[in-house]
Every structure is written in C-alpha cells, then in structure tokens.
Design a protein around this nucleic acid. Structure first.
Lengths: 187, 187
DNA sequence: ACAATAACTAAACAATCGGTTAGTTATATA
DNA sequence: TATATAACTAACCGATTGTTTAGTTATTGT
C-alpha cells in the first residue's frame, strides 16, 4: 500500500522513557524528544498522538523494564529478606545506563502529585497497589505476624520505598545502604 | 524623593511562596506570580530581580515560617520522642492554609535534584545539615547510644523525613501515621 | 509501470515563557 | 510649589512551548 515506518515504536519509546526519566515530564520538550528518539515531530504525533501520549507509553515501557525485578521478588521464598534484596536492587545505580536517578514512577508520582491527570494517576495507583500486594504476600511468609501487623508493615515498606527512590536521586550510596539496613531492623 | 511602594515585599513574597509550594518552580509562571502577588511584572522585577530571585526569597520566607517548629524541637528535652513529635508536626495538614502539601524544601530538593543551580543547592544543603545536627543532639540524649549509632540513625531519620515529606503529598493521614510509628520503633 | 497511500521533511502555527521598556503617576525634598 | 525620582501601567520583546500542515518521497498492490 504505502511506505514503511523507518523506526520501531517500542525502540523510540524506550529512548523517550530514558529522557523523561532523566528530566521529568514538564522539563522534557518536544525538541528534546525529537533529538533523543531520532525521529521528527510528525512521526511522534502520528504514532503517539501528543506529548502526553508519548509519556504514557514511556511509563508502560518503564513498567515492563522493571517487571523483571518484580517477578524475581514474586518468585522468591525468603519473606522479608527478599524485600530487602528488592530494595537494594532498585537503587543499584551500577545497573542503570545513563546516570538515571531514582525511579521513573516515583518521580512521576511526585511531579504529578498536584495534577488532575487521571490517566497518569491511575497508572501510579495500580503500580503502587501491585507493589503493596507483593509486600503483603512476602510478609505473610512469617507465621509470627498477624494480619494487622502485616498491613501496617506493608504500608511502612511502601512509603519507605517511595522515600528511598526519592533519596536515590540526591544521596550517596553509603547513606542509602545505611538507610535500608535500619528500615529492615524495624520489622 | 519619590513615590512609595504600594506593597510590602515580605507580604508579597509569602504569597509567592505559597504558590511555589503548591506548584513547584517550573510550573509557576510569571503570570501566575503577578496574579497571586497582586503586583505586576515591573514591580516583581524591580524588587527581586527575576523569577529565580523571587524563588530564593520565597525559600527564605519558608525557612522562617518553619523555624518555629525547629526551635520547638531544639528546646525540648525528651530525645528521640521529640523527633517523633517533630515528624508529626511537620505533616499536620490541618495547620496548613491552602491545601499545601509536603515541604517546600523537600519539593525543591527533588525538583532541583538534577539541576546545577548552586544557590538553590546551597540553601538545601544548609537546611538539611541543620536538621541533621538537631537530630544528632537529640539522639545524644540517650546515654546507651554510641557515636557511630547516632550518626547512622541521624542519617536514617534525615532520609525518613525526606520520604515523609514526599509521602505527605500523596498518601493518607492513616498511612502516614503507620509509617511514622514504625520509623521510631527501634530507635 | 502506475496509481494509491502512508511516512517523511520542514516550515509555520498560536500561545505562552521569562524579561524589558517607554510613558505616566505619585510623592518627598528643596 | 516646583522638581527630581521612584513606582506604577501596559504594551512589547525574542525565544520556546506543544501542535499542525503543506508539500515531498518511498513503497505497495494492481
């Protein structure tokens, strides 16, 4: 029928995701996206509608990227110890390609905290809910914990994880390690 | 010599501060500032130089505003328990005027994490350093803690406070209370 | 090989950004 | 009261924002 696309949407979205991860939503312009994604505005708009659409797809791409770490946590069987391992994995900067800092979801959560963007907020909610559910399952592996304690501690871990992701952007590796150690002393 | 100013700089800066607090730096435009401060651009620029200048003064205004809570913490004598009280005070939304969320310093810390703005970064550093020093003094009130433990726990509290301020923007009062309780469980 | 059509380029769009400036108004001092 | 001068209004600046569109190029099915 007609001409082929000269780019793969999944590939250019991953590049966009890295840019959003580094700069946040507002600070990332269409010009920057053009350059980073290697395609021009027309292609971006025809593939993803608008800037917001690029961002939503980037978030999905990010979720897919971290789903491996999530799956590893889900599949493990050492309870709280696995969560600790998960915390360490999520701040391991050596694994991150371009000096990426923190967690894209947490950054987005913060940047959109006062916004009314339903689509983004919904994505955030489900992400957090999933994570909390995994925490609950891991905590249940300890027969000494009752259900009330488990729910409280899951909440505690969720907020700690949020704080950790925020801290990962500004604090040193050493400070973060000390932080994680004490987090899990309280469980 | 000449005409009098029709506004008080401290007053309009407090209004600007509330706007920055709600929206962050980038998302706050000069137009919004004009409206909120009740004066026009010329006056803003003649009093504060530029947008950045308005923000720096807003940060100072914020520091002054929270200095009472800081002083209360400094003056108290119950060690860790006072820090816990301080944590509760800093998230007490009922005391906040216009649905303000979180802490302006922490929001700024996050927003400027990847920036090279030395003036802002320096303000952040001194703020955090002061807070950490207060934590250390409170922790030293416990004779059972050695100096190494104190430093680690001060770090832990600083990052927890950071996470708390971030969480205060998106989480419920209940979740936050659970979080604070567990933070102080083992200190 | 040709016509249909989708993907490309590049220029332009209105709106908004932070910031400036020419011209007017008010006031303290002389 | 006259004058110097600071504070005001409001229009305007160039640059950049996200988005659109007119015109060109490449590929496909017939």
């Amino acid at each position: 029928m007609a001409r082929k696309k000269e780019y793969i949407e999944e590939e250019v979205i991953e590049k966009a995701m890295n840019l959003f991860w580094r700069n946040g939503y507002e600070s990332t312009s269409m010009q920057m996206l053009e350059k980073e994604m290697g395609i021009n505005k027309f292609s971006i708009y025809s593939s993803f509608g608008n800037k917001h659409g690029v961002f939503v797809e980037s978030l999905k791409s990010y979720k897919q990227k971290v789903s491996k770490i999530f799956q590893k946590l889900r599949d493990s069987n050492n309870g709280v110890e696995d969560i600790k391992e998960f915390f360490y994995n999520s701040v391991d900067v050596t694994k991150k390609p371009n000096n990426q800092k923190g967690c894209l979801v947490t950054n987005t959560y913060n940047e959109f905290a006062e916004s009314e963007d339903k689509m983004i907020k919904e994505q955030m909610e489900t992400f957090m809910k999933n994570l909390k559910q995994i925490f609950i399952e891991k905590l249940r592996m300890d027969p000494n914990k009752n259900e009330e304690t488990i729910l409280k501690q899951a909440n505690y871990l969720l907020l700690s994880k949020h704080g950790l992701a925020a801290a990962a952007r500004v604090n040193t590796q050493k400070e973060i390690e000390d932080y994680i150690e004490i987090i899990f002393k309280n469980l």
